[in-house]
Simulated scan of single mutants.
Amino acid sequence: MGRVTQRRPVLRIRDGVVSSRPDTLVAEEPLEIRLNGKPLAITMRTPGDDFALAAGFLVSEGVLAHADDLQNIVYCAGATQDGSNTYNVVDVRTTPDILMPDITLERNVYTTSSCGLCGKASLDAVRTTARFPIDDTPASPPVRLDPELLAVLPDRLRAAQRVFDRTGGLHAAALFTPDGELLDVREDVGRHNAVDKLVGRALRDGRLPLRRTVLLVSGRASFELAQKAVMAGIPVLAAVSAPSSLAVDLAAETGLTLVGFLRGTSMNVYAGEHRIAQRAVARQG
């Protein structure tokens, strides 16, 4: 199985002093995801949690929603001359009676570590395939978040990034309770992969939908990350950087609370502000 980090030689220059030394880098390798034996997608990822990554990807595709939708996930032999397993190909087998959405069967997908689901930018597609509405109901009261609590979550995420400390080159995604308790954190060279790993683990543990959770991502909040939150039933998505316009549109249409530029005590709430506790503050001058 592939390693999370790899060593490479580097020429280091510090204050005019030149030296040669090995450097620890985050590993990036392709993962081919097959669905019931047929190629579906290739993503560039950091090896590790591959089964969760594949399961989470299929949640965002509208294929999987519950643990019993999944029959099993196995590694397939890679394309090597000696026939050895590269651990870069996984096959996801669904239960026989599962209904496949047309959006998955009609296409093959190549995703890079930065773009996520590049070929699917349709709000209608998410609206029609989402299994877990995140609209607040009497049976599912809204999550209420204090801005002061949100403000400390990035530091808690950063403290849990073990591989980042060694490489400085990984995105991270974390799930928190409304009280700020860290439930899970995953790292990957692709931020969308990190989210898939979180969602995939929750699916396999029978914890979907993730209704009373907060998803925090390092970096920006793109459309595909908002999509993944909606498809997993997550009501709040927060990011340390900016959201895209389409992410804001999707959040507004689905009821997702979307927070961007979460840095220190500052943040912007782009949609779903009813979940953020607000207190009037008198301004001087």
Rank of each mutant, 00 (worst) to 15 (best):
G2F: 07
V4K: 15
T5R: 08
T5N: 12
P9Y: 12
L11T: 13
R12V: 14
R21L: 15
T24D: 13
A27E: 15
L35R: 04
K38V: 13
A41M: 15
I42T: 15
I42Q: 12
T43A: 13
D49F: 06
L58T: 03
L58F: 00
V63D: 12
A65D: 10
D68L: 09
Y75H: 11
Q81I: 03
D82V: 02
G83C: 09
G83M: 05
S84K: 05
S84H: 10
V92N: 01
R93S: 04
T94G: 05
L99E: 09
L99Y: 02
T104F: 02
R107T: 06
Y110S: 11
Y110W: 06
T111H: 03
L117E: 01
K120C: 04
A121K: 12
P133I: 01
I134W: 05
I134A: 01
P142G: 09
L145W: 04
L149Y: 08
A151M: 15
P154W: 11
D155H: 15
A159L: 11
R162C: 09
V163Q: 08
V163E: 09
D165P: 03
R166V: 08
T167I: 09
A172V: 02
A172N: 05
A174M: 08
F176I: 08
T177G: 11
T177M: 10
L182V: 09
L183V: 14
V185I: 15
R186H: 14
E187A: 12
D188Q: 10
H192Q: 01
H192S: 13
V195W: 01
D196E: 12
V199M: 06
V199S: 07
L203C: 01
R207H: 05
P209T: 03
P209E: 02
S218W: 06
A221H: 03
Q227I: 00
Q227N: 02
M231T: 00
L237H: 02
A238K: 04
V240Q: 08
V259P: 07
L262D: 06
G264S: 12
A271N: 00
Q278C: 10
R279H: 13
A282I: 13
Q284D: 15
